[in-house]
């Protein structure tokens, strides 16, 4: 497979950072997929004394504050937030692509309306936006996913639109119009394939940010509900035991951070390899 004349392998190993990122993300995704088959104990099962230290004969990473196997909970702890973040951001980016490309192509009043809505959302501090929704509609996985989608939608529209703007004046678009292609056809057949790289990078960057937001929400008690294992929730559960069992917040913090670091390295490398400016994308979410 070739993108911009580069093989996928070349892109994924663009720099040492990219390779590390790709490896970290792959490990996390593999773990998330296969954890139910790999975990030594049920993730909600009470199997031992509370707060056994890591290195215990039966429990590699010890037990949590009520005696559940900590390794099993850690391995299962990313599934919900990764799913919420990926599905939410994917929705935001896919729907955002349509609005962004059409706004860039059609322009005028339609463009104005979309951009004002985008500006409105971008003017409201992110956590506040999410908190209001979650408090309003309750804290279910569905609500969380929709909220993540809504909060990343405007940023995605903004970035993708500016990429599409560079394409609209190009000859192939004019040619398509002269051939008599319909507006929808120009949007889907001509423009969208040419912004696909930005969309992919956008997806990777926003997913990493979304994972941080979901974990912060769980930490603040607005995210995922017990007994579902979740890293952000595990940190907040462990905070009160920090002097006695620091590993209870250390391990989940490391899991969140390695995933986010991996995503950022990978998306950064991806953007560089594709000649895009990733720094702009880091913003405005």
């Amino acid at each position: 497979m070739l993108v911009n004349g580069k093989s996928l392998g070349a892109i994924l190993t663009h720099s040492p950072g990219t390779t590390v990122g790709v490896i970290l993300v792959s490990l996390h995704l593999l773990n998330a997929l296969f954890a139910p088959l790999l975990i030594p104990y049920g993730e909600t099962q009470l199997v031992g004394q509370p707060m056994l230290e890591p290195g215990h004969a039966n429990f590699l990473l010890g037990t949590d504050v009520i005696g559940r196997d900590f390794l099993s909970r850690l391995m299962m702890g990313g599934r919900t937030s990764i799913t919420v973040a990926m599905v939410g951001v994917l929705g935001a980016v896919l729907i955002g692509t349509f609005f962004a490309v059409s706004a860039a192509y059609i322009g005028g009043f339609y463009d104005d309306v979309i951009m004002r809505i985008v500006d409105t959302k971008l003017s409201i501090p992110g956590i506040l936006f999410v908190a209001l929704f979650v408090v309003g509609f309750g804290r279910s996985v569905t609500v969380l996913t929709i909220v993540i989608g809504l909060s990343y939608f405007p940023g995605a529209v903004r970035t993708i639109r500016s990429q599409a703007m560079t394409q609209v004046p190009l000859a192939y678009v004019k040619a398509a119009r002269l051939r008599g292609e319909s507006t929808l056809s120009v949007i889907f057949r001509e423009l969208t394939p040419n912004v696909v790289e930005v969309v992919v990078v956008e997806f990777a960057i926003r997913t990493s940010s979304a994972i941080l937001i979901v974990s912060a929400l769980s930490f603040l008690g607005l995210g995922i509900s017990p007994p579902t294992p979740d890293w952000g929730l595990m940190v907040s559960e462990g905070v009160n035991q920090i002097y006695q069992a620091p590993w209870l917040i250390l391990f989940p913090a490391v899991f969140i951070s390695t995933l986010v670091v991996g995503l950022n390295f990978a998306s950064d490398g991806l953007a560089n390899a594709l000649g895009l400016d990733a720094a702009r994308g880091l913003h405005g979410g």
Binding site: G17, S208, L212, S215, A216, F219, G232, V235, I249, A253, I256, S257, V260, V261, N264, F265, D268, L282
Partner: peptide, 15 residues
Amino acid sequence: VSTTTIIGYSIPDFV
């Protein structure tokens, strides 16, 4: 520098 800043950005505020 880039690596360090990315790592800083990847650790949650509350941690």
